[in-house]
Design a protein around this nucleic acid. Structure first.
Length: 277
DNA sequence: ATGACCGGTCGTACCGGA
């Protein structure tokens, strides 16, 4: 069984490359992030021609996650129980410079998580909030989102089914996972609290399936589009494949498909591909 | 190939990305 996770940075913009990659790589289950696509507009017919059923979660311009599977797709969860929403910066001023009255507004959670059972494995495709800066409300939201995720995955793991939780975690687990730690001092993705959030997930029994880089010593999965970062290997490992212990024990091989980052019109993230025995 | 971003949007300029 071949599983993969890929932040495609718009499924619409990436569709030709996604279809070519599916045809070539032939994964059984694929977790996609940043589809930036309303669920009812997802190109399900196109991937179905390659044998994949789709479960999509998305409401438009930003975020958006999906699971593609050719080994069945059941018990789809749009988001996770208790998933927090983002209410924006507190104390924002309106155009007249007046503080807005804080009226309670119930916002739906963003489309950052979708779960499905595929081929006997519980699969989660995750797109963690960016966090922006450690001082921002978005960063507090990121930590709250991870806390909610830990509780939801903990409840599922307690049921004992094989589970994978993979996607764009927007956290580099260690300093080895960024090309230059000095550049990231004071930035998100490397703070102790974010790394603790990952540790809290591992404490549930999830194992970090670290892929083979294929080139160079670091299994980076993301390279900024700017400044030739990919060619200079100025990357980060932020797309993670977390697996329950029984699944992790079945991992035969895992690799970063950096070929998918090359050429014209790539995503800024490369897929992670994991083969289970 | 020795230099370098991209996608989205009823703001073709700006936000979000990390």
């Amino acid at each position: 069984m071949r599983l993969a996770t890929w932040n495609v940075n718009s499924v619409k913009a990436r569709l030709p490359r996604l279809l070519g990659w599916l045809d070539e790589t032939k994964p059984d289950v694929v977790c996609l992030q940043e589809t930036k696509c309303r669920a009812d507009l997802f190109p399900a017919a196109e991937v179905k021609e390659l044998g994949y059923a789709t479960a999509a979660h998305g409401d438009g311009r930003w975020n958006g996650v999906a699971v593609l599977s050719r080994v069945g797709i059941e018990d789809v969860s749009l988001g996770f129980p208790g998933e927090p929403s983002y209410a924006g910066e507190a104390g924002a001023e309106d155009e007249a410079g007046q503080m807005e009255l804080s009226e309670p507004v119930l916002l739906a959670p963003e489309a950052r998580a979708i779960g499905a059972t595929c081929g006997g494995v519980r699969v989660w495709s995750l797109y963690a909030p960016n966090g922006r800066t450690p001082e921002s409300a978005h960063y507090a939201y990121k930590l709250a989102w991870f806390e909610g995720l830990r509780d939801a995955l903990g409840a599922e793991l307690a049921e004992g089914a094989p589970l994978v939780a993979c996607g764009d975690y927007n956290v580099a687990p260690t300093d080895e996972d960024v090309w230059d730690p000095a550049v990231f001092v004071g930035s998100t993705h490397v703070t102790p609290a974010e790394r603790q959030a990952l540790a809290d997930l591992r404490a549930l029994g999830l194992r970090d399936v670290v892929p083979t880089p294929m080139k160079g010593p670091h299994p980076y999965t993301y390279w900024d589009y700017r400044a030739g970062a990919f060619h200079k290997n100025m990357g980060m490992r932020i797309d993670l494949f977390y697996a329950s212990e029984d699944v992790a024990a079945r991992v035969g091989s895992a690799y970063v498909d950096r070929e998918a980052r090359k050429g014209k019109g790539p995503s800024d993230h490369a897929p992670v591909v994991v083969d289970l025995d």
